Amino acid sequence: MIDPSRPSSYRDGHGRGRGLDSHGHIRREGALELVTAPFGPVVEAARKRLPGVFGTRMTGAYLYGSIPRGTARVGRSDLDLLVALAAEPTEADHRAARALGDGLDREFPQIDGVGTLLFSRARLLSDLETYDLGWFVACLCTPLLGEDLAARLPRYRPDSRLARETNGDLALHLPRWRTRMAEATTDDARRTLVRGVSRHLVRTGFTLVMPRWNGWTSDLGDMAESFAAFYPERAEQMRAAAVLGYEPGGDPAVLRSYVDDLGPWLAGEYARVHGIKAPRPQ
């Protein structure tokens, strides 16, 4: 278990600090040079095909997730992309992104799916998104093509404002998850839902304690341990969720425990500690 009394200069088992630079800002995670050999062809194919899909409307493209962090697992990890557009994405843009992802997924067995986020450049740089999508681009995304918006965004500290604006909307997700639970009638559908909800809860639990832990990590296990140091009474639930975030099962009881117990408790504690995320347009 991580000792919360250790100073911020604490080093983890890999010799890295807690994801912060010497000034206490969150370091950008990931880099193209960290992409491991099996995933190099996938990244290169995405780089070549994106301009053909979005043309001059695309102002920049990024990788995020395990592939640019160098932790992807062959046949298990997906390719995560974020594309910045000159205008708000249309339904045609989303269809084109899905077609691109489907093609890459079929062609490269080393990945298990492709997810592509589409946002306008203006939204990514907006005041409303500075401490959510802006932070995501500046700290968790690796530039692949075009303009890097990180140059236009601030440096970020692991403080309460960042916690509130990234994950302070958990209460809004709970009814959506209940609806999806009712619609998930196969083991595969339930596994997909367990994976996504588990990851969301672990990341929310981590950002709840992030200002006190004073650092950043994207590893689900490390997130769960950081949380456990401050909420030992919920530690085993969060550790179990971290495991399911990597190796999901399809047990409906797990989903029920998320939406009936861990999720509501976490949403309430988050609101008490950090407040509620600023509302977004529907």
Rank of each mutant, 00 (worst) to 15 (best):
213 W>F: 15
82 L>P: 00
90 T>M: 08
175 P>N: 08
199 R>M: 10
162 L>C: 07
224 A>P: 04
237 Q>V: 13
217 T>F: 01
68 P>G: 10
20 L>T: 06
82 L>G: 05
250 G>F: 12
55 G>T: 02
122 A>P: 05
124 L>D: 08
180 R>D: 13
99 A>S: 11
191 R>T: 01
170 L>E: 01
29 E>D: 09
148 D>Y: 01
274 H>M: 13
189 A>Y: 00
242 A>V: 03
223 M>Y: 00
2 I>K: 04
209 V>W: 12
4 P>F: 07
74 V>D: 09
164 R>G: 10
245 G>F: 05
238 M>L: 14
120 S>E: 11
127 D>L: 08
35 V>H: 12
35 V>L: 12
43 V>N: 06
214 N>Q: 13
15 G>D: 01
52 G>W: 00
250 G>Y: 10
153 L>N: 11
254 V>P: 04
264 P>K: 07
235 A>M: 11
162 L>P: 08
235 A>Q: 11
171 A>L: 12
114 V>N: 04
247 E>T: 02
272 R>L: 14
235 A>V: 09
278 A>V: 13
278 A>R: 15
186 T>I: 03
218 S>D: 03
145 L>E: 01
37 A>Y: 01
164 R>V: 08
148 D>N: 12
94 H>Y: 00
216 W>Y: 14
80 D>H: 01
138 A>Q: 03
93 D>V: 09
146 G>M: 09
240 A>H: 11
203 R>S: 09
197 V>M: 15
36 T>I: 14
148 D>C: 05
127 D>H: 06
166 T>W: 11
40 G>E: 15
142 T>M: 02
70 G>I: 11
10 Y>S: 13
122 A>C: 04
112 D>M: 03
184 A>L: 04
128 L>N: 05
242 A>T: 04
55 G>V: 02
49 R>C: 07
18 R>V: 02
38 P>M: 12
274 H>D: 13
89 P>S: 06
34 L>E: 12
233 E>V: 11
270 Y>T: 08
191 R>K: 10
166 T>Q: 15
77 S>F: 02
37 A>M: 08
104 L>H: 02
263 G>I: 06
28 R>K: 06
15 G>V: 02
62 Y>G: 07
258 Y>D: 07
219 D>Q: 01
29 E>L: 11
45 A>M: 03
59 T>V: 15
125 L>H: 10
38 P>V: 12
282 Q>I: 01
23 H>E: 15
161 R>G: 01
151 A>V: 14
244 L>H: 11
81 L>A: 04
167 N>S: 13
25 H>P: 02
133 L>G: 04
132 D>W: 03
56 T>P: 05
121 R>T: 15
51 P>V: 04
32 L>I: 12
230 F>S: 05
